[in-house]
Design a protein around this nucleic acid. Sequence first.
DNA 1: AAACTATGTTAGCTATTGAACGTCGAAATG
DNA 2: CATTTCGACGTTCAATAGCTAACATAGTTT
Lengths: 254, 254
Amino acid sequence: MLAIERRNEILGKLQNDKRVIVSELSDYYEVSEETIRRDLEKLEKDGYVTKSYGGAILNENINLEMPFNVRKNTNVVGKQRIAALLTELVNDGDSLMLDSSSTAVFIAKALKETKRNLTIITNSIEIIIELFDAQEWRVLSTGGLAQEGSFALVGPQTDQMLSAYHVSKAIISCKGFDIHNGITDSNELHARNKQTMLNRTEQGILAVDKSKFGKTAFALISRLDNISIIVTDEKPEEKWLRLFEEYRIKCIWP
Amino acid sequence: MLAIERRNEILGKLQNDKRVIVSELSDYYEVSEETIRRDLEKLEKDGYVTKSYGGAILNENINLEMPFNVRKNTNVVGKQRIAALLTELVNDGDSLMLDSSSTAVFIAKALKETKRNLTIITNSIEIIIELFDAQEWRVLSTGGLAQEGSFALVGPQTDQMLSAYHVSKAIISCKGFDIHNGITDSNELHARNKQTMLNRTEQGILAVDKSKFGKTAFALISRLDNISIIVTDEKPEEKWLRLFEEYRIKCIWP
DNA sequence: AAACTATGTTAGCTATTGAACGTCGAAATG
DNA sequence: CATTTCGACGTTCAATAGCTAACATAGTTT
């Protein structure tokens, strides 16, 4: 059994029983108590539980149903790479906009571990939840219509709220990214929100894995002009790099 | 049973009964009185209770918030009763505002099972998540600052968004409810948001369990004038009913 | 091969609890 | 109003369970 499997099972047990006992888990999984303690330690660090003498209890304010069931996360490694690169672009004290892409969730997690005193504005419910316990941060939710399926807030209310702020960096993702058609998304409301984010910042950062290169989706977000930096998970081909140079876009990969 | 569980339960009992007795707790949990004293000592150190000879009483300094998991799980039955009563006041197609109280979460759940085609505006992240899959409903999130501990969005942004709408019913809860001091809450930002909700509706509904009657918390939400209906979990005493009559407030209990 | 990860093992340390006992507080009694 | 009395309190001590930290090992990744 993999460690991560065991941890997930422990989380499952916590959802049922609200608490776990170190000695019981150690018996059940036939690993040493130390291993279980290390598991709980990790879960505590991730904010899921509170340890106590002899065991741990579930943190009720983390809505556990969500992170596991909802996302059919693809290319997790790529997204984590992108997130790691992004932490180097962000400084303590920055103000950021994050969109409601799954990449942005990874970015939020990575930033939480490394940065202090950030101000985040986002329309992603997942990110809001992820950052609820971020000490010293200011986390703002745009309002908006709760859109089934994407865990995002969308619509004109979202745009209006975004327009009330100006941030040093806006980090967005997209469904498609093409020389002729610019940056595109499959959902018009999402596209509009991302557009607004780019309009309210000096530095637009596109965080997008390589599979999106050369793709075009339904709704236009922006031409390439509004993008300052592209962060991706693999080195793009020469034609892309030439294009980026032409537009004076900095491109970063691991 | 883990020590932290016992302490949380004691806090829960304190929320209901306002006081605890050392000897009773010792019997109930089958630990020595010393252990209970040490528990109370810790709770006192954390500011939740004041010890006294033979037991301890809850600090009525309601400004100090209970841990979320304790607050959420107290008087579940009362909250469910209130939620059930409220479904009878709401019609299919209504537009509602719901605040970020734990009672409101129960109300949202009850409505989801019984009503069609509602429009909900709320600043509660829990409710947003709960209603993400509500078919045919329109669920709007107010924006706002994500406030640690309460799972709510607060601040001027929240007010601004609320002010952009007008609904048939606003359903709010509170920490204290008193003849002279009106409806009060421990948190000023929450109080302001609830106030705004009452201003944006024809029918203000106060959903509040009986333990709040006669209490006064720090921040004023509203005088009684703005309330049309009070829904509670037990029949209030005569003096309250007379008061409600005077203000032409309808009061409902199971 | 080196670096890293997951796990086990151990030794020393710490936290939690209950028992014992002298002191203190509250309420009844004179 | 002073005294008495009994339960409650705090402190200390000891026992035990649990914890931390350091090191060892094996398997995996780079």
